[in-house]
Design a protein around this nucleic acid. Structure first.
Length: 389
DNA sequence: TCATATT
């Protein structure tokens, strides 16, 4: 791919584009995402070669799978299978794609699988999309381990940890019992201090069992109190409970009504007008804001979402740059770089579809005028008219 | 006394 994450991150820091104060938080989120790059996740999940390290390959199929089949974790709750396919399809041809959902509620479980035709594309997807910020999440892209019963229910819940214990120290404590797939210490959202509870996911269930035997009711080195180690709650059971409790909720609390949405829109439009006041620069967005309030001729609205026109992309731009730029602002359902049929080079523009008006509006306000390389992007809702130069 | 990682 032509535009690397790190290039964009350095461009963001170059100072050529100064964000307005009100966009600071969003841009800070973007910078984090763009600077995170491909290698921000520290816990590896490569192909599980430990279990079949004999000289002759057990099964050529499973080894092939491990090179094309990816597991994608920490997906935004509202992301659909189609969006997952759209995102990963921008890298290469996909053999199959599955978003895992709760069997009962149908809710996304926040992870999925993408199987490429070409192992090179799988590798490229890890390098390109691992660490990508989507809404409030940072997705993780890694090779899927061959599916088997032995790797299920290998997740531990740990409580009573010393508040000073770091994630690294937690892993050190547990790593003697097996390969750790992922670990986490929960922190207070306000203070950021450890809540003394966390999770350890082992490669295999037997490793988790041994860790319980060895560490439950034991004091970690230097600790004054023993810790509790047990299997973590099964997430599917939890969603069933949520379903049950939902039955007892008043129905009108489940979805925000049109009034609430309109109120939100008013606040957002005021915010946008303020932003353009500060900029002292006319932008078509101000008109978009007003017309959408009046409910007439809504630009960019195509029923399926809000279509955004992105102009002045470089000839070597690709879809991933659009995901990187717009993903942090909210639900993106599709991106498209328009290319010349013969040269396959970008013709200088592309489109992004976002589900929610508010998020699309903030993305536009934030990214219009954004300098990408030596180009200043023009970002607006797509209009029906042909764009003139 | 628990966020969401094996189709």
């Amino acid at each position: 791919m032509a535009v690397r994450l790190c290039d964009v991150a350095s461009l963001l820091r170059s100072g050529s584009w100064a964000p307005e104060p009100w966009t600071g938080q969003v841009i800070a989120a973007m910078e984090t995402q763009l600077s995170n790059g491909p290698t921000c996740n520290n816990t590896s999940n490569g192909p599980s070669t430990m279990s079949n390290n004999c000289s002759s390959p057990v099964e050529s199929g499973s080894i092939e799978d491990s090179k094309t089949n990816l597991i994608v974790n920490y997906l935004p709750q509202n992301m659909t299978q189609e969006e997952l396919k759209s995102l990963f399809g921008s890298i290469g041809e996909i053999e199959s794609c599955k978003l895992v959902r709760d069997k009962i509620t149908g809710q996304s479980l926040g992870y999925g699988f993408v199987n490429y035709v070409d192992p090179k594309d799988a590798e490229k997807a890890i390098n390109t999309l691992n660490g990508l910020r989507l809404q409030t999440k940072t997705i993780k892209v890694s090779y899927a381990r061959p599916s088997s019963a032995s790797i299920r229910d290998a997740n531990l819940y740990v409580s009573g940890l010393p508040k000073t214990m770091t994630q690294k120290e937690l892993e050190q404590l547990f790593s003697q019992y097996g390969r750790i797939i992922t670990s986490r210490i929960l922190v207070d959202q306000v203070t950021g201090v450890s809540r003394g509870v966390g999770f350890i996911r082992f490669d295999r269930r037997v490793e988790a069992e041994e860790a319980i035997k060895g560490l439950n009711c034991q004091k970690p080195p230097g600790a004054t109190e023993p810790i509790t180690v047990k299997f973590a709650n099964n997430p599917s059971q939890k969603t069933s409970q949520a379903l049950l409790s939902q039955l007892y909720q008043s129905p009108n609390r489940r979805y925000p009504g049109p009034l609430a949405q309109q109120a939100q829109r008013f606040r957002l439009d005021n915010l946008l007008n303020m932003a353009y006041g500060v900029k002292s620069r006319f932008s078509p967005m101000a008109i978009d804001g007003v017309t959408s309030l009046a409910g007439i001729n809504i630009p960019g609205h195509a029923g399926t979402g809000w279509c955004i026109f992105v102009y002045n992309l470089a000839p070597d731009a690709d879809e991933s740059i659009l995901w990187q730029m717009f993903g942090p602002f909210g639900a993106v359902t599709n991106v498209k770089v328009i290319r010349d049929f013969n040269t396959n080079k970008c013709k200088g523009f592309g489109f992004v579809t976002m589900t929610n008006y508010d998020e699309a509006a903030v993305a536009i306000a934030s990214l219009n005028g954004y300098r990408l390389g030596d180009r200043v992007l023009q970002v607006s809702f797509k209009t029906n008219k042909t764009h003139k130069a």
